[in-house]
């Protein structure tokens, strides 16, 4: 056919491969990514080394190169340090709870359970509901005269939950865990389909009870899903924004529940210091990538 008559064009052939039309198929996405995504990332890195600020379009303003100043400012900024600490608090609460609950619930939902569809759907509901919609309810639950205090009475902390320096972050982490749990249950449900039934049978023959077979068959069997869940939960944890923005009125009380993203938002958009915000963003991005790689390495070591 026509193919044989063509002169050899090695480089083009290598890019094109066996199905050159694939390049055309992927092209719209790639062009979109380069135009929308690559440019802002490069600009963010550029901005983080400059004293950048927003000016009217077309106005010529001086935005001097300041080297690492934005980065040094960030690490000296108590708000940023607090935000990093809060990410750690968030992850310490959120990740173990998420992994534990999601795996146990997924195992339960994987059995021939009556009303299984109902149970699955009810875990999924918070995930599909807008954070903003749920936050009103949580605000009301944890208000000083909210439902939680009405139930536990005098045992509630003073000042009350969300305006308490100690309790604000744990409640934010619990909210996020609750909201996202359904998604992770589904990830585990999917992974459980790949654990061969023979392993459970063999464990039963060897006299293993339910708990032992969970420990020795299920947990190792869904290990790659656990890696995925931990990495995704870490990304979500590094990026939480809506919760402190709305639940604690912009990272309150007194900055106790500030998050790096909220800080970026406040500094970059509200305070017009996009260079500083970009530096925070770059630090955050590097942090997420490093933590993801370390997680992956630790979890998939053998």
């Amino acid at each position: 056919m026509a193919v044989a008559a063509r002169p050899p064009r090695r480089l083009i052939n290598r890019i094109a491969g066996r199905h050159p039309v694939g390049v055309a198929f992927a092209a719209p996405y790639m062009i979109f990514l380069v135009v929308i995504y690559a440019y802002p990332i490069i600009l963010a890195i550029y901005m983080s080394f400059h004293d950048y600020f927003f000016a009217a379009p077309g106005a010529h303003v001086d935005r001097p190169f300041i080297g690492l100043d934005n980065y040094i400012t960030a690490f000296e900024d108590p708000a940023f340090r607090r935000a990093l600490f809060n990410v750690v608090v968030f992850l310490v609460i959120n990740v173990p709870l998420t992994v534990g609950l999601a795996l146990v619930l997924a195992s339960a939902l994987n059995t021939a359970l009556p009303f299984r569809t109902f149970f699955r759907a009810s875990y999924y509901l918070p995930y599909v509901t807008a954070s903003v919609a749920l936050i009103g309810v949580w605000l009301w639950l944890f208000n000083s005269d909210g439902l939680v205090n009405a139930i536990i009475g005098e045992a509630g902390p003073d000042p009350t939950w969300l305006v308490n320096r100690f309790w604000a972050m744990p409640i934010i982490a619990l909210f996020a865990t609750w909201k996202q749990l359904g998604f992770y249950v589904l990830v585990y449900l999917a992974a459980l389909q790949n654990v061969p039934q023979e392993l459970y049978d063999a464990a039963a023959v060897d006299g293993a009870g339910k708990l032992r077979s969970f420990q020795h068959v299920t947990v190792p069997g869904v290990r790659s899903a656990t890696t995925l869940v931990i990495i995704l939960a870490t990304i979500v944890g590094a990026n939480f924004f809506t919760e402190p923005y709305l639940l604690t009125g912009g990272g309150g009380p007194n900055g106790a529940s500030i998050s790096p993203v909220l800080l970026m938002y406040q500094e970059g958009i509200e305070q017009n210091k996009p260079g500083y915000a970009a530096a925070i963003g770059v630090i955050l991005a590097i942090g997420v990538v490093v933590v993801s790689l370390v997680n992956r390495f630790l979890l998939e070591r053998d």
Partner: peptide, 12 residues
Amino acid sequence: FFPAVAIIAPLF
């Protein structure tokens, strides 16, 4: 895998 908000200022 990249935090969405890291690019919010340049996008703006």
